[in-house]
Design a protein around this nucleic acid. Sequence first.
DNA 1: TGATGCTAACTTTTT
DNA 2: GTTAGCATCA
Length: 779
Amino acid sequence: MQDYLKELNEKQREAAAHMDGPLMIVAGAGSGKTKVLTTRIAHLMKQGIDAFNILALTFTNKAAAEMKERIEKILGNNEARNLYIGTFHSVFARILRAEAHKIGYPNSFTIYDSDDAKSLLKSVINENNLDDKLYKPQYVYGRISAAKNNLMGPIEYMQDHFIQQEDARSGRPLLGQLYAQYAARCFRNGAMDFDDLLFKMYELLVKHPDVLAKYQHKFRYILIDEYQDTNIAQYQIIKMLGAVHENICVVGDDAQSIYSFRGATIENILKFQKDYEGAKVVKLEQNYRSTQNILNVANKVIGLNKNQIPKNLWTDNGEGEKLKLVRTLTDNDEGRFVADAIAEQKLRNHYHNKDFAILYRTNAQSRSFEESLRRLNIPYRIFGGLSFYQRKEIKDFVAYLRVVVNPQDEEALKRIINYPVRGIGKTSMERVIIVANEQNITFWDALQQPQLAGLKGAAAAAIEQFVIMIRSFQAMLTKSDAYEVAFTVGKHTNLVKELYNDKSVEGLARYENVQELLNAIKEYTETPDEEGELTDKSLGTYLQNITLLTDADKNGDEDQDVVKLMTIHAAKGLEFPCVFAVGLEENIFPSAMSLYDREDLEEERRLFYVVITRAKHRLWLSFANSRYRFGSLVQNEPSRFIDEVPQEYIDRSFAGLAGARTGAVARNAAAQQRTFTPREKAPQQARPAASGGTSDVARVMAQKQAQAQITTHVPSANFTASDPEDMEEGMRVEHQKFGIGTIKKLEGGAHNRIATISFPTGGGDKKIMLAYAKLMILS
DNA sequence: TGATGCTAACTTTTT
DNA sequence: GTTAGCATCA
């Protein structure tokens, strides 16, 4: 037996050594699925299958890169470079780049990210004189996206009885027309959005049997990672591509399906055996990642879901530590607790920064952790959020490049036509757009003839100048490489100079970012080919690639010794020795959007399962009594998922900050004993927004200054908390941390009273929740 | 026409 | 608490 197969357990080997015919690998969390997948590909190649005939699809670029690397390692050569391996979106973009003309698109089509898409939608909505409060671009985009992921074009959409009813009921009967217009506009702009990369790929295969045959023949072996997260479009495409050879291998874990909001359907994995008769099924149930305690919790939690393939994860690893459950008063306390715990663990158990991950439900939750980590000088990195390519200065620069490559691209044109300022104002632009729409020509074509829009004089001249400039860049495309073009664009448009002259801190950062972009393009042009036969180093390919990159894909700094912060979604597929699962509160996790639907709730539970199974040795669950959301304090009950963790696996002696606060703890003890019953509505009356319309700049400045000089207050020796019921406006009170202050205002209902107290030595005005804060009445 | 300051909307999750 | 988009002023 080959060495690389010896490293696998029996089940893993069975899967990896399988050659022909459909295969489904049901791989529990941490069961070594990437190892199996990579070994299988290497094995296929060892058996003489040409790398050019293997297609492997993943959900992130990072996963793809990692797989490629591992395969190279097994094989000891660089044959893996010839594999077709990448995300669904990037692989299909690559194929479409070669074939797009067959469905009427330019091969240098632009890829619209969701910002571009929404911006175009907004234009369309406004042109129809519709209210964009009702037809919110975000909402419309969501509907269109869902339609495309279900392979439903505008016509099908408008003919679908059920959908029409839904739209009528929501008061948006014109959604279908917006969809049609948006699609037409994208087409006119030579642009595809993310969903089009799947939808148009499908269209291509359906309309052009010759193309289908070509790729069916080419991809003799198809492997798909994270199959539980595929949607209908992906499913159909795979089905078509694999129909001839049926050498389809899918790997997935129904328990980790967490992307239904993107159209993924768990059905795909559940029905695989029906789709492919005689499919071989291998279950991987041995977990190599976590301790027994962690796994027990995970198994128990996921067992509460109804719809699933039965599995039982087990491990050889020791029992390990119990989970630690932590309650804090506020989100800031939660942040402080986590940072302290990291510092402590580093000392006590010799962990490194990179051994820790802080995982949350929503990106917005990162703030309190950032602050507290910074305070303790613990380096960290946030994954997700704004990617490099979404920064304004980068988008501006890239917009130029996009126009050069594809002048039909209306969104990019709009972005740069008057940036840097060249005297083409809003009115001129709108006129041209109207003409373009009337004549159904592209914005760019309309710009060639400004007189059609009734423009003359300075405006027309400015447009003419602009057009000439862009043309001169386009002329370079055939002769020069991507970097030369980009460099010339930066120089000629004064973009780089303008940023260089901005000497502010942000300006400097922007300048550096643009330099980094230029460097990246240079690197791209100079790196030798790594891909299969379809390589080309043009600017167009480059632009398509970067649109599909996310922040998580940023190369190379794997080994940086930093604490990692990311959403649970982003953490899927990763593992960390120590995991903090934070913000376990009702309305956050589970999210408020998913409380009223069994299926949504089960997806949240799978998300909880995912976060638990990220941990190798230690796992903390934490939640806060109250936290700032949208700038005001909100109270949430502890997450129902906490109740679902069996008591015997929880370490409660470790109470975090909660131990000291008797009132809160007592109230909480009752809450934690609740069993899995539908809970009463949390008392969440909306509070009046912070009053005071006129904001006095001087006062705010003074306040900020005061905050900076907080001196730590030492509580009086006889400090005892007074009953909040007794407090009234105008009273002088003492706070253990902020010192002595005066109650300026009381608001909120009987159980949620909030006092605005001014502390002259404690940092100015504070809003304090009387139910939790300890205050002593002085007079 | 451009810069500045204010309001409102925002939070699920991502290719 | 943040940010995008809008209105107002220079």
